[in-house]
Amino acid sequence: MSLPRFHCPDRTLLVQGGELPREVAHHAVRVLRMGAGEELVLFDGQGGEFCTRIMTIEGSRVKVAAGSFDPVERESPLRTILIQGLCATEKMDWIFQKAVELGVTALWAVPTERSVIRLKGEREARRLEHWHKVILSACAQCGRNRIPELRFFGTLYDCWAKLPASGLRLLLNPEGRPGGTDLAPPDGTVVLLVGPEGGLSATEINQAHQAGFVGGRVGPRILRTETAALAVLAALQSRCGDWGL
């Protein structure tokens, strides 16, 4: 059975030991019911992880010993960016969580013409903070020691300027031609573009094609927005990533 894993951004604490952040301490002791002497793994998102153990528990204060560093990496050699059109909150959480487990390199959220959800100002900041926690939790669960990039763009146009210069740009379109998605090993980063529940508009699809995106419908069945990118990420990891199936 694997040890409980927690994200802790304070590398000094990981190296020297000390008091855990309040949220981590609460989860370890109050949720997982861990006690003094039990081992756990801490990672700061910069690579590698530290095995340590709980020294003392005094109320909400939990102290751990100096960590033993393990440089293990679990990142896929395949670089992938998911551009996800804003959809219902619970669906976005699911997509981001599972994409992290499937080894995605970066997660970009963007409103589209058919997005019901709109984020601005304080609401945008709260949602980004929430997604960041979803990503950290997924990393802790699946063993990743590097945190995927999270970005929010106001429009699809804003995304185009930040796209990698080389690689494969795939548009997953339920109204497109079946079999139009090429999953051959890419030379560079694979960028996946997925619309919200109602899909991308004809104008947005044309814009995507002008930005170099190719592809279409994945298989003979229509996949939901929370299924499409995850299915393709899984296929890519199997063919070009680190699954070795």
Rank of each mutant, 00 (worst) to 15 (best):
S60N: 15
V110Y: 00
V64A: 11
S115E: 00
P174A: 14
D182R: 14
M55K: 05
C139A: 04
A140N: 07
L128N: 07
P185F: 05
C159E: 02
R114G: 05
A109I: 11
G59I: 09
G167D: 07
L119F: 08
P111W: 00
R144A: 03
G143P: 00
T56V: 02
C159S: 02
M92W: 05
E49L: 07
N145K: 03
E129F: 12
V72R: 12
L150E: 01
L86V: 04
D182L: 15
I147T: 11
I135V: 13
E90S: 12
I81S: 07
C51S: 13
L168Q: 04
K91D: 05
S60I: 04
K133C: 06
Q84M: 01
F50Q: 04
I117L: 12
K162G: 06
I81R: 05
V134N: 09
V100G: 02
C51I: 07
R114V: 05
A125K: 14
E73S: 11
A99L: 10
A99T: 15
A138S: 13
P186D: 07
S137W: 12
Q141C: 14
S166M: 12
T89Q: 13
W108E: 00
R123H: 01
A138C: 07
D182P: 12
G59E: 09
L86E: 09
L156H: 00
A140H: 03
L170M: 04
E58D: 14
P174F: 09
G176K: 02
D182Q: 15
L119E: 02
N145D: 07
W108V: 02
I117N: 03
A140P: 11
L128R: 08
V62T: 08
A65I: 15
G179L: 13
N145C: 13
K98C: 03
A99Y: 06
R53K: 08
S166G: 13
E124L: 15
A184V: 11
M55N: 10
L102H: 07
C139N: 09
E90M: 09
A165V: 15
R74K: 13
L102E: 06
E49C: 00
K98Q: 08
D93Y: 06
A109V: 06
V116E: 02
I117F: 02
L82V: 01
L171G: 02
I57G: 03
R169F: 11
L150M: 08
P185V: 12
C51N: 11
E122R: 02
G176N: 08
A65Q: 10
F153Y: 04
C139S: 11
W94K: 01
L128I: 12
C159A: 04
D70C: 14
E129A: 10
E49T: 02
L86K: 04
F152S: 06
C142D: 10
L171R: 03
R144C: 04
A88K: 14
K120V: 14
V72F: 12
D158P: 03
P111L: 00
T89H: 15
